[in-house]
Design a binder for these strands. Sequence first.
RNA 1: GCCCAGCUAGUGUAGAGGCCUAUCAUGCAACCCUGUCACGGUUGCGACUCGGAUUCGAAUUCCGAGCUGGGCGCCA
Length: 429
Amino acid sequence: MRLPISEVKPDTGTATVIGWIHEIRDLGGLSFYILRDRTGFLQATIVKKKAGEDVLAAAKEASRESVVKISGVVKESDKAPGGREIIPEKFEIISKAETPLPLDVSEKVPAEIDTRLDNRYLDARRPKVAAIFRIRSEVTHAISDYFYKNGFINITTSKIVAAATEGGTELFPIAYFEKEAFLNQSPQLYKQMMMGAGFEKVFEIGPIFRAEEHNTTKHLNEATSIDVEVSFADHNDVMALLEKVINVAYEAVAENCQPQLDILGTKLQMPSKTFPKLPYADAIDIAAGKIDEDIKYGDDLSSNAERAIGSEMGEHYFITDWPRSIKPFYAMPYEDRPDISKAFDMMHPKMELSSGAQRVHQYDLLVEQIKLKGLNPDNFEFYLKPFKYGMPPHAGWGVGMDRLITTMLDLPNIREGVLFPRDRHRVTP
RNA sequence: GCCCAGCUAGUGUAGAGGCCUAUCAUGCAACCCUGUCACGGUUGCGACUCGGAUUCGAAUUCCGAGCUGGGCGCCA
């Protein structure tokens, strides 16, 4: 029976392990093979005078990163990593690795991110990389779990859509038989339709596509979005939910991923239970006072302004009360201040993580706002129709999963937290 | 879309007109080595993105192409 490497203890006795050869050190009469699986490292020690012919032959044949199966007696040894080593009685090459390797898994020689992404399957053998994705899995699990426990329905909506809906971002056109179609930029309109369906609380964790030609460490053309929509809730309700969800994610990682955090050398900066709410007008004032740029009310926040405000706030925070002019048509305006919308962004000091709003649920107001944006309501018929037949008031948000991981682990590039990132130039692997 | 930078062995690099038959590390091969943990030692293998120009001479300067990274804009 194969034993995970982390379960090999000094007193295990006889064991069989399977893993990749991480390093080989040949000292002459004695050689060391460092074996790696997803749980850790184990040193196999071969004393050439004592080892069998077939063990010696296989060991000589084995190259770094080959998959091997080793059976033998485990011995306590304070000279070995982990305080134990295995003395192979059987040494079988299960899958031999060619040489040279496209990149150095043992990290003696660094590789650039581009080389690493081209060879992601090898890159992901590095414990630091594997740790990121173990943590990302934990975040997904914890957040989903929280939603399930609080009465949310997990939905999946179509990523193929007929037309540009929300406006704003560029869409990828695709070939869809004889029709024009696009990859969806957001599940926004579908979530809202499910409010019309009476689902009341829904969430979706799935891909979104943006065809922007940006080239930065915080943008992707395919991203994962954590989306929620809640009926009979306003913007304040869903901001409270968002704080909770971010906290749930951090707490789960702190609780269940300490080994991975240790491998990464990362100390989690735990978020506050509630995030400060900064009205947009005040955010503009802060930015205008800190940076030498012509910033005025009604502008969107530049990267520079975002950073300036972020360093002032120093933690997760909301920017609330945005001018209606720079938020989407589905954001609800305040009854008494129609130029201001009940929209918010949730920020990490380094970048925007989320945006959300209480939505417009009144048909007439929605049509009016679509027109106000210079869009044609006729193009939104599939979306507008549910608003005629009993649409409850509702609110929601979307969080960029990739950015959440990037900021949580303080990664230098958003691509670090995505297995197979899609950016301006990369479509493979 | 705008701007900046880069491209040298499998990987990461040195290189500023002749010192380049191109440095170093890692890797790989062979040999030596019984406690390594970035093992050590000796020898060897392996590269200037492409095209044009300038020059007696170009990895190095110039022009063009290709590819890549990053910043801004836009966007989340």
